[in-house]
Design a protein around this nucleic acid. Structure first.
Lengths: 139, 139
DNA sequence: TATTGTTATACTCTATAACTATA
DNA sequence: TATAGTTATAGAGTATAACAATA
């Protein structure tokens, strides 16, 4: 496999590209972009969230989410309702049509992660998450 | 920090976005895109490579590299020479102007990684790389 | 006939700023 | 005055296919 570049950050980038392709391969015909996948994965638990929370949780810009949510809503998979407690804000949730789609996305992610941890060893998980966490919080 | 989503893949995506911003912050005025950063980081060691190798090493499409290399070449930082051994292929390398730029990119990446490992513990590195490696190779 | 790299195309993401409505 | 979300804009990435030159 030639050379790895010796950089955690370069390795990180390669992994994102690879998992994006692996997800597309496991979800044929769904034709979902990365932000759409991330939104569905986060909603799969049945949670209702604001756009702001989705932006923070999926590391995408609110303006990117607007169009991603537009597409998901256009497919009938996601719903936006005004939050009665703060009418500037939306409550984003899955529709009954969207629920199984989101679950299949989540299942594909879990499948990849399970296969990966089985190979790398469960013990690797902690080290992975520790490095990910500090890379995510680096100023 | 609200919620993490419990997914290695979502965590991976957040980390990439965060490191991209951290790099831009540490290299003000350089105005480099992600593929450009990756190319410079890979060339920083003085290595000469083909576009094909760069594509594999940075996880970007050859068609993306064409425009990234065009911009780096336009800034006088990178050079493309025909490979005499295979005249379909280019030898891509840094110019003398590009060398210090590439080294500063590499230094910024190393800086982030060092700070991160100091916090997470050197022992985390192996687990991180093991998970990254299998995520990168997942079919 | 296969491979290297470029070009072309369509769609999406990123980043930023301006804007509306609400707080 | 600040915040939530949308809209607008410009530049770039992604994916794919077609293409020329070379192998």
């Amino acid at each position: 496999m030639s050379e790895n570049g010796g950089s955690l950050i370069l390795a990180l980038h390669r992994a994102v590209h690879a998992t994006t392709r692996a997800l597309a391969h496991r979800l044929p015909g769904l034709d979902l972009t990365t932000p759409e996948l991330n939104v569905l994965a986060r909603l799969a638990s049945g949670r209702t969230t604001s756009v702001r929370d989705l932006a923070a949780g999926t590391a995408t810009k609110p303006s990117t989410l607007t169009s991603a949510l537009d597409r998901l809503q256009g497919r009938g998979w996601v719903r936006r309702e005004l939050d009665p407690a703060d009418r500037r804000s939306f409550l984003v949730s899955l529709t009954s049509d969207g629920q199984p789609v989101a679950e299949s996305v989540r299942a594909a992610m879990d499948d990849i992660e399970r296969a990966c941890l089985a190979q790398a060893g469960e013990a690797s998980r902690d080290g992975f998450l520790a490095v990910i966490r500090c890379l995510t919080e680096v100023p």
